[in-house]
């Protein structure tokens, strides 16, 4: 059964999520990928404020295409999450709850998710046109000079995701392939 969930995630909603759950996410999320993460972590190192309060929020690893006339956004699928592994534990430690991307996470991120009670969702990589249809509003909130890599606040409706790493030790990127591996 597909669960309907809302961002920012409420504690009871978050606690119910398990690796392997299919969910439809609605609400507010923030895009951020390589360059935005690098800048955010530099701000943290300098003791400065982040452009948005990450506590309780969900970050979507995405850099969209420009919108065509009349559209809200261009194609907007997830990018490879493992490139953000260097930054995620720091952000999780500051209270970031959710991450959306594609592909497996490193052990340090899996551990940070468990320690801080977070969640990592897989969106379908390469389904950029389909996902764009779930985005109802876009607002650049920081690092506009980074172009596609700017931080954008997205209002999404029924974004199809799969819970890939939960806070209870579940990791679909390990369990899934192990189930179908043949020697």
């Amino acid at each position: 059964m597909v669960k309907q969930i809302h961002a920012p995630l409420q504690p009871e909603e978050l606690a119910s999520l398990r690796a392997g759950d299919s969910v439809l996410l609605s609400g507010t999320i923030y895009t951020g990928r390589d360059a935005a993460h690098k800048r955010m972590c530099a701000l943290i190192a300098d003791g400065q404020a982040l452009p948005f309060d990450v506590r309780g929020q969900v970050i979507y690893y995405a850099g969209p295409c420009p919108a065509k006339t009349g559209d809200v956004i261009g194609s907007c699928g997830p990018t490879t999450s493992s490139r953000m592994d260097a930054y995620s534990p720091l952000l999780c430690g500051l209270g970031l709850i959710g991450m959306i991307g594609k592909g497996p996470r490193g052990p340090q991120v899996v551990e940070a998710i468990q320690r801080n009670g977070g969640v990592y969702f897989a969106a379908t990589g390469g389904a950029g046109a389909l996902i764009a249809g779930c985005v109802k509003a876009v607002n650049v909130i920081a690092f506009d000079d980074l172009g596609t890599e700017a931080i954008r606040e997205l209002k999404v409706e029924n974004l199809p995701l799969i819970v890939a790493v939960d806070a209870h030790g579940g990791n679909l990127y390990e369990q899934g392939p192990a189930q179908y591996r043949r020697e």
Binding site: G63, S75, A127, A129
Partner: peptide, 15 residues
């Protein structure tokens, strides 16, 4: 997604 992209002349993938 691939069928939608062709129909709407949108990029298949944002990359």
């Amino acid at each position: 997604n691939d069928e939608l992209a062709a129909r709407r002349r949108m990029p298949i993938c944002q990359d």
